[in-house]
């Protein structure tokens, strides 16, 4: 019997602090670095997300690509949706939504800190993604969520860069991060983890990785990791578009719509009828993937 081997994912990266310093500025966004230095309070709106600052520290982050704190907390029954709504309405007294959730006995401070902190890093990964337009900063008051566990700007930027490395090491083509996903036909299907199987079950040619994360109430970055690993295993691939740029070319950043709106459902472009009716030869697919991977190195 042939033992089925799971493709071993590459090791998690450690980002060298000296390398960051050598690039002139260690940051992802010079504007954010400046705001941190002047201990600004307000909202930084970038192309793919927003960061809320209080005294130069990041207190909250949101992105249309990442599920919000409410989704993460309510999707798994950690918090009843009514409790979230009530905390939102009661928070007008200035004490912050977070305080109400904890005081109301709905959440332990630990669960709230954990969920919020992971959600901030998750949304910030997208908010700090390279953008084609400059960010705008609105000075003002801190986020109504109230202080939970503020994150220094430098730590957030450092982690965001490390996360880019992490994804790149798993599979160097970012094509699966935003495109609708389809199932590929692997030559030898590897054993999948339960997490990956749940993600794979939702791949239907329309949903993108962030859509799947939102539906499952999972962190978007974690879902990107799962999807890139599935891609590396040859189990999924991005839906090919007619004018699909070659994987080695930098992808054109698509402006996202107003936040809150669901991501646009891609118009089923002259769908790869050939793909639906006639699955491509697995061996050809494998060779193409090998070529793409080599080019992307």
């Amino acid at each position: 019997m042939t033992a089925v081997r799971t493709a071993e994912p590459p090791r998690l990266p450690v980002r060298s602090k000296t390398a960051a310093g050598e690039r002139g500025w260690g940051g992802v966004s010079p504007m954010l670095t400046r705001l941190a230095a002047e201990r600004a309070t307000g909202v930084l709106v970038r192309e793919r997300g927003t960061l809320h600052l209080a005294d130069g520290l990041v207190v909250h982050a949101e992105s249309p690509s990442a599920p919000g704190l409410d989704t993460l907390l309510t999707a798994h029954g950690t918090l009843p949706p009514e409790a979230w709504q009530r905390a939102l309405t009661e928070a007008d007294d200035g004490r912050g939504v977070a305080r109400h959730l904890v005081d109301g006995g709905h959440l332990t401070p630990g669960a709230l800190e954990l969920c919020h902190l992971t959600a901030v890093y998750d949304a910030a990964y997208f908010a700090l993604a390279p953008s084609s337009t400059p960010g705008r900063f609105r000075y003002g008051t801190a986020h109504r969520l109230g202080p939970i566990r503020p994150v220094p700007v430098a730590a957030l930027e450092h982690e965001t860069l490390r996360r880019r490395d992490l994804l790149h090491r798993i599979w160097p083509d970012p094509g699966t991060d935003e495109a609708p996903l389809i199932r590929a036909d692997p030559v030898a299907a590897p054993a999948l983890t339960r997490r990956q199987q749940t993600v794979l079950d939702r791949v239907n040619g329309v949903r993108t990785a962030p859509d799947i994360a939102r539906e499952l109430g999972r962190l978007a970055f974690h879902t990107l990791v799962d999807v890139r690993r599935l891609m590396a295993a040859g189990v999924v691939s991005p839906l090919p578009r007619p004018a699909h740029p070659k994987p080695t070319e930098p992808r054109r950043a698509e402006p996202r719509r107003a936040r809150g709106e669901p991501p646009p459902v891609p118009v089923p472009v002259p769908v790869p009828t050939g793909l639906v009716e006639l699955p491509p030869d697995p061996h050809t697919t494998l060779l193409k993937r090998l070529r793409d991977a080599l080019e992307a190195l």
């Binding site: 998690l12 954990l114 992971t118 982690e159 992490l166 974690h222 990791v225």
Partner: peptide, 11 residues
């Protein structure tokens, strides 16, 4: 330490 194992981030 409290660590997230998917990303390797220390919370």
């Amino acid at each position: 330490a409290l660590i997230d194992w998917m990303s390797g981030l220390a919370l």
